[in-house]
């Protein structure tokens, strides 16, 4: 696994890669089928779907029905992937995903774009800080918070053939480059991006970049921070959690999500009986979202490298 992190942003946009990968998977696998709820234009699949209405199905603005249709297609042997914005891919269709997909064992992949503050100018109504919490309560669901372009491609390919309910949260804009092109990121194991003995920063999604920046700054003051990418939030790599708890004794979890129910909760649940580490969190403090540019929102909700640095320093005091 080749790491290329240097803090620079990828010139490619997630939305373009998402659309392109969906089209490619469709060409490679006749059972693959993609459904959307009137947001095809947001990920560049609209023109292609118009030409291939049997491979890219626009269900209109009816997310609940879209989940049910996808599950019915799964029951007839298809491998459906559905897309809509994160809040609609989680809150709005929770019962449909829970029962029609999960309980009924109709295997589908759900992509929720614009997680947390990446919803920026769509504002509070479109800003899911609770999607991970909801999906975590679906038995055996797989939850992925995407870090960069190579990971998105790798995860999409894996989810197509993975049983159960799979939820992928990913932005539509660009992200910092972490993995070299062509890197496969197997779903499950956490990925150690940086070793350190004083504190371990567990991060997912956009917070991986912030965690790496924070680790650089902490190093200047002599604090050696490990950075671990927990892009698979469920099933959680509990062995990695326990290992870093023992190794560092201090953990800070950084997530673009409410502190209730997400990665922080999962880590705390894992370590509740271990008593091996002090744990703190950089996440949204039980608030609703609001409108604004992403950099403003990251400051507003406390989701920056500076917040991670402060939290680490406070924890180590």
């Amino acid at each position: 696994m080749e790491l290329i992190y240097d803090g620079s942003m990828d010139s490619r946009l997630f939305k373009d890669i998402l659309g392109k990968t969906i089209r490619e998977l469709s060409e490679q696998d006749n059972d693959f089928i993609y459904l959307d709820a009137d947001l095809m234009s947001c990920i560049g699949t609209s023109a292609w779907a118009c030409e291939n209405p049997e491979r890219g199905v626009n269900c209109g603005i009816s997310e609940s029905n879209m989940i049910g249709v996808a599950c019915g297609l799964a029951a007839t042997g298809f491998k459906p992937v559905v897309h809509t914005f994160g809040p609609f891919a989680s809150r709005r269709v929770f019962d449909q995903v829970f029962l029609s997909a999960g309980y009924a064992k109709n295997d589908i992949t759900v992509i929720g774009t614009d997680p947390g503050v990446t919803a920026s100018f769509n504002g509070g109504t479109h800003m899911p800080f609770e999607d991970v919490a909801l999906y975590r309560t679906i038995p055996t669901a797989t939850i992925i918070d995407i870090t960069d372009v190579p990971m998105l491609i790798s995860v999409l390919k894996q989810c197509k053939d993975l049983p159960g309910v799979k939820y992928i949260r990913v932005g539509r804009k660009s992200a910092a480059k972490v993995f070299a092109d062509g890197t496969e990121t197997p779903i499950g194991p956490a990925i150690t991006l940086r070793e350190g003995k004083d504190v371990a920063i567990f991060a997912s999604g956009i917070m991986v970049h912030e965690a790496m920046q924070a680790a650089n700054k902490l190093a200047e003051s002599g604090i050696e921070a490990a950075v671990v990418n927990f892009f698979t939030i469920k099933p959680l790599d509990t062995e990695a959690v326990k290992k870093f708890a023992k190794q560092c004794g201090n953990i800070v979890v950084a997530e673009n999500h409410n502190r209730i129910g997400g990665l922080y909760s999962a880590v705390c649940e894992t370590l509740a009986r271990e008593n091996t580490a002090k744990i703190d969190v950089v996440a949204v403090n039980d608030e609703y979202g609001e409108v604004g540019p992403q950099d403003y929102l990251q400051k507003r909700f406390g989701l920056t490298a500076e917040h991670i640095v402060e939290t680490v320093q406070s924890l180590l005091k």
Binding site: I33, E54, V57, S64, N65, M66, I67, G68, V69, A70, C71, G72, L73, A74, A75, T76, G77, F78, D95, Q96, L99, S100, A104, N106
Partner: peptide, 15 residues
Amino acid sequence: QGASLACGMAFGEKL
């Protein structure tokens, strides 16, 4: 929910 599931199944049979 069964209404949507049946639609997906009918669509699948057609495809």
